[in-house]
Structure formats: C-alpha cells, structure tokens
Design a protein around this nucleic acid. Structure first.
Lengths: 167, 167
DNA sequence: TTGGAATGTCAACAAGACTGACGTAAACTG
DNA sequence: CAGTTTACGTCAGTCTTGTTGACATTCCAA
C-alpha cells in the first residue's frame, strides 16, 4: 500500500475518526508494553516508575541539576525530591553540591546506579529493538516522526536538546 | 506491508543503542503530549485518567461487561469499581443487569457520558490528526506497525479484537 | 547590606493503584 | 437438588506518586 514514494502522500491521507481512534488505542496498549519490562525489574528492587525516569535522565545527562531534571520530568520538586532521596539512600545516585553555585546539586549515578540503569534500559531496548526489527526501517522512521509531532512544543524542545547531546 | 517490510530495508536497519534510546525517549515525551489535552478537560470535571479510560472503552464497546472492561484495562476490580461508581453517580454511565445472565452488568454511556466522551476524544483526535498530517501517510503506517509490535501478546490480542468490532 | 529570587527540604494530603477478606446472587454441574 | 463456580460489589488497609504549603539556605542585585 501507499507506494506513494517518500513524498509521503499527503494526498493519500484519509483520516477517518475510526483510524484516529485506532492510533489512540495503539498508543494506550503499546505504552503498557513499553513499561512492562522495567516495571517487573523495578519491583524486584522496590522502586517504581518515578525512580526509573530519574535514573534514566540522570544517566543520560550526568551532573544535571535538580532543576533541570524537574523541567524534563514535569513534576513538582517535592515529588522529585522524595524519589531522589530514596535513590541516594539506596546508594544509586550521588548528589554533589555545586562548585560554582552552592545552591545547586549535581546528580550522578554511582556504579550501582549505572548497573540498574543498564539492566532497565537493556530490557527496554530489547523490546524496542524487536519491534523495530519486526516493523522495518521505514516504519521506524515513521514511528519517530509521528511521535515527535505528537509532543507539545516544550516537550519537543527538551527531547531535541537531549538529542543534540549525543547525535 | 508489515511482513519483512518489502522496500522497507531490513538491510538499512542499523539499531545502535543510541537510536533505540531515542525511540524510548520519544515514547516518553509523546505519551505526555498524548494525555495532556484530556487531562485538562478531565480536571474541569473533577475526574482523572482512570475515568477517561473507562469512558473510552465503554463508549467503544457499549454493553460491555465489567469483567471484560477489567481485562482490557488491566486493573483490579476494586480499582475499577471506585471509578465506575463515580461515573454512575455523576450520571455518565449506566449499569444494566444482564438479561441472559443476571450476574453480569452491562455498561453504557448516558447522553451526558457520550458528550464527555466526545469532548475528550475530539481533543485527542485533533492532536493525533495534526501529528498524522505533519508526518504523512507512510509515517502513519509505520507508527502503527511499530506500536503493534511493541505490545505484549495479550494486549495485541485485545487491541485487534477492538479493531474487528469496527474495521 | 539587605531584600528578593532561586534552589532544595520537610510535612501533610489526595488520587489511584494494589492485596485480602467477605457477601450475594445467579449459573453451572455431578 | 446440593454444592461449586462465576460475576460483581464492598470494606479495610497499604503503597506509589502526584499535589500544596511552609521553611532554610544561598546567591545576586539595588
């Protein structure tokens, strides 16, 4: 179908409500699959999704400040703080007082934190890899394109900022 | 087009960890965008995401049983019951005793429930439509293909079952 | 130097998930 | 027909993760 060439075929785009609804439901079910593996691992360690998100983005941007993490995660600082405290107590995250600005705390994963990060992202990558393989390269490109278009402006800005960091 | 993605280029599929990570982060940020509009509407009415999910799937499959809804949503009956009770009290959902099997309750949206369902799904469809338009037809196909591949087997079964209902 | 802004912490609360136990009515089964 | 299973509802208690509000510390600029 849609051999419209990479022109992409705006012309072929018949968007019935039913098709849109399928997209919505696909997001719902796929997101559950997307979080299923990490959830199982986290439970073993007594953590939840909030901890996963913190670990992910600290691992992604070592030395990030609490405020920066706050902006990415879109939660209140009090909520993040609880999560962070648990991770620091468990010895997975280290919080270093800023050298230039002592109000800031710079966050890093400890070796144990890196190990859990790897365990979590290995699982998630394995699922993503399988899905990508099953779908093919063109599908993958389309997948990313639609997801980016679905973000709010601010979210897309943050997403692309992460992208820059490691192109 | 799913199979082997013919032009799709399995050959072109270089799945670096970095690329996979981008896909993971895209899911994270896109899902936030995906739920942002409904969340705003729900707040006005004093409901949450859990209510949205129930409303969506009742609207999708009118007359569905509690047990069926339970399976789709993947929560406990206690959790669903709290949500359902609120929706029934608010006059958005009606629970009818089954005719054939009187143990069952068949769930329907009232006119008010349908109105809220429409308000919610209009918002969500508008975003989905904009994303689809921006991405093009091929991207849309790829998007759905990858999402389906990302589901667990049971989830995919349920997703496709909904699909059948209205092809 | 002093007051405001930024950063982070502690405390209390709410939503929404969970488990476990129990009750009722209807349907099924030997 | 008696006993078991199924479908649903409810009460009670816990956990995670979000929320506000109040407060301490640090920096910076008037």
């Amino acid at each position: 179908m849609a051999e419209g060439g990479q022109g992409g075929g705006e012309a072929l785009l018949f968007l019935t409500d039913e098709q849109l609804r399928k997209g919505i439901e696909a997001m719902f079910f796929a997101y559950r699959g997307f979080t299923a593996d990490p959830d199982r691992i986290l439970e073993k360690h007594g953590f939840g999704r909030a901890h996963h998100r913190a670990i992910h983005f600290i691992g992604r941007s070592p030395g990030t400040s609490v405020n920066n993490l706050l902006a990415i995660l879109g939660v209140t600082k009090q909520s993040l703080n609880r999560v962070l405290r648990a991770l620091i107590e468990a010895g997975l995250v280290e919080s270093r007082v800023g050298r230039r600005d002592k109000r800031e705390r710079h966050l890093h994963l400890t070796p144990a934190g890196e190990a859990l990060e790897r365990e979590l992202s290995d699982a998630q990558r394995a699922r993503m890899r399988a899905a990508y393989r099953a779908a093919g390269a063109q599908a993958v490109a389309g997948f990313r394109t639609v997801l980016e278009a679905m973000m709010d402006g601010e979210q897309r800005r943050q997403y692309l900022a992460l992208r820059e960091a490691s192109p």
